Simulated assay, not measured.
Amino acid sequence: METKLKIDASVLTSKGNVRDKNEDSFYFNGTFKEKNSIIDPLSLSLNSSDKKYIFAVCDGMGGEQLGEEASHLAILSLHEFYISYFQLFNTIADLKKYMDSYISQTNQKIYEHSLTLSKKMGTTIAAILFCRDKAIAFNVGDSSVYLLRNSNLIKLTTEHTEAQRLVRLGVLNSYTAKFHKSKNILTRYLGANPANGTMEADYSDELTVLKGDTYLICSDGLSGSLTDEELKFHLSVGNSSASICKDLVDLALGNGGKDNVTALVVKIIDVA
């Protein structure tokens, strides 16, 4: 009998306290935020037992209409894959091959759309793919994926920002990078000029999914407003995924909420 994952998953997105529009988008295993949605905050939940899942968060850039357009294009492309191909793949390696193609093609699509508008636009993406008892996370930009396992918070993605580049060079440390002027300068995003090279995502190692794991995908409106200790505390609480999302977003909004905020939580109830 094939392994299935029993999950409790939720997503909550808010435009925040300052922005007029929500440039964040999400993909929730076949469901997504509609473009120009007036529901704010917007939340969805899923309790399911299945072999495969895909979840993603995108954070648009370019300002209001443009940012929302870019993140929505990325999500629509992901939905096309989900409808046409997702059920055909049986391994993480197969899924990863397609995601490589998805990233480069979506980058091209958003860039070409920006040319028709004569305005620069782009989006981040952070996602996690589950296939039986395996998973892999990937990202482009500064949206993030975390795993809470056995009370340890593990960041599965690396932010593509100028500040993080300086961290890798030893110029900044992880604490000072959070406040550095270059923390919002993206070094990689979907919508960049393809003439500069093929756009590629960074992938985590392939993970073996364990009962009790809790995964978080979020935009930098969340991760940039909370400390790792705050993330760990709320992910550790034995509440439902919906309750965890609400607590995380409420805390980010309470800490200022200057950006759009999206939290997507997947709790692994059983692996069988």
Results as ranks from 00 to 15, higher is better:
residue 116 T to V: 10
residue 55 F to G: 09
residue 110 I to E: 01
residue 91 T to K: 05
residue 230 E to K: 14
residue 159 E to S: 04
residue 97 K to G: 08
residue 168 R to Y: 10
residue 44 L to N: 07
residue 86 F to D: 09
residue 189 Y to A: 05
residue 54 I to S: 07
residue 195 A to T: 11
residue 149 R to C: 01
residue 123 T to I: 07
residue 136 I to P: 14
residue 163 A to W: 02
residue 117 L to E: 09
residue 207 L to Q: 15
residue 135 A to Q: 03
residue 68 E to W: 00
residue 95 L to K: 13
residue 54 I to Q: 12
residue 230 E to Y: 05
residue 235 L to F: 13
residue 102 Y to Q: 07
residue 147 L to G: 06
residue 154 I to K: 10
residue 173 N to R: 13
residue 219 S to R: 11
residue 101 S to H: 07
residue 41 P to I: 01
residue 154 I to Q: 07
residue 201 A to Q: 08
residue 223 S to I: 06
residue 154 I to P: 03
residue 109 K to D: 07
residue 29 N to H: 13
residue 8 D to R: 01
residue 221 G to S: 03
residue 51 K to V: 04
residue 42 L to I: 08
residue 237 V to G: 01
residue 207 L to G: 13
residue 12 L to M: 15
residue 67 G to Y: 00
residue 57 V to C: 03
residue 226 L to I: 11
residue 93 A to V: 01
residue 256 G to L: 06
residue 106 T to A: 00
residue 52 K to N: 06
residue 245 C to Q: 00
residue 81 F to W: 14
residue 266 V to I: 11
residue 187 T to Q: 09
residue 65 Q to H: 05
residue 217 I to G: 03
residue 57 V to L: 05
residue 30 G to F: 00
residue 108 Q to W: 01
residue 87 Q to D: 14
residue 111 Y to D: 07
residue 15 K to F: 04
residue 128 I to S: 03
residue 182 S to D: 13
residue 1 M to N: 13
residue 181 K to R: 13
residue 268 I to V: 13
residue 22 N to K: 01
residue 127 A to W: 08
residue 45 S to K: 14
residue 172 L to Q: 05
residue 68 E to C: 06
residue 249 V to L: 02
residue 175 Y to G: 12
residue 108 Q to D: 14
residue 154 I to N: 07
residue 90 N to H: 11
residue 124 T to N: 06
residue 55 F to P: 15
residue 208 T to D: 10
residue 41 P to W: 02
residue 165 R to C: 10
residue 241 S to T: 12
residue 154 I to D: 00
residue 136 I to D: 05
residue 143 S to W: 13
residue 204 S to L: 09
residue 65 Q to M: 08
residue 268 I to F: 00
residue 123 T to A: 07
residue 59 D to H: 03
residue 168 R to C: 07
residue 63 G to S: 06
residue 7 I to F: 08
residue 37 S to M: 09
residue 67 G to V: 00
residue 117 L to S: 05
residue 137 A to E: 03
residue 119 K to R: 09
residue 109 K to M: 13
residue 90 N to S: 14
